[in-house]
Amino acid sequence: MSRKTRDVLSVEWVKLELIRTAYATRGGLFAKMDPRMVISWYLILAVVPWLTHDLVTIIALFGLTAVSAALARVGPLVLGLFLIGFVTDFAYAFGAAWVFGGDHETALALVEITLKLATVSLASIAAFVSLDPEELSTGLLAWKAPELLAFGVSYGYRMMPILFEEFGTVFTGLRLRSPQGPRGFLGLRALWRWGTWAVQAFYPIFLNTAKSVRTTVESLETRGFTAAQGRNLRIAQLRIGALDVAVVAATLVAVVGAFELGALVTIA
């Protein structure tokens, strides 16, 4: 047995991936856009798959969001999680159709809904990976969302790496100091222990965080957060440019094209 420092699939890697995803540090097409337009773009693609039952149209829309995800430079962690979900969903669709005595039509219906869900998922991944929390919260403000919600989004993202780090530290402490034991059949007992520690880690984290949040809340008070006169200043930072219009227009054209294609070509 030999340990080595791993750059992927380690706790540190997950933390970095979360930061990269949350703050759109990889850049990409949508990261340059106005948050309101990105959200609009997402809403278009979140709705249209539900307006058709034509498999060709759905496949075309899926292709469109897949290209978008590539342009948004989605990271390996999020993409990997998506693919796991996608593949198991497909397997489940066929498995369910087979077990419950359905024929190929049942399977096809299940594939259709899986593809629709995958399309919407990819669109949301592409959009939210590209929005950093500040833009997202400003975008929400511009659409008359309450200040508290907009701040919650931004603050939640800010706390995420801190909580993740804290969890890692506390979990390490539990792992090193707790009773060890046999790994068990297929490592199940070890897995059970790890699961137990993961849950136990929340006790210290809650208490440690509760203490630190008191300062945060007081500080928010002193810095005029509840005075909330900054809405217009923040919204004034937003600009809709040529790129925004072009991307949304191109998407609309592609969506219309997908429906046209569905009308022209038929399978099954």
Binding site: Y23, D132, P133, E134, S154, Y155, Y157, R158, S212, V213, T215, T216, E218, S219, L220, T222
Partner: peptide, 15 residues
């Protein structure tokens, strides 16, 4: 203006 002892918790924005 008030700067806290645990000033890290006073920072609420990402950048």
């Amino acid at each position: 203006g008030y700067v806290y002892q645990d000033f890290q918790n006073q920072l609420v924005r990402p950048r």
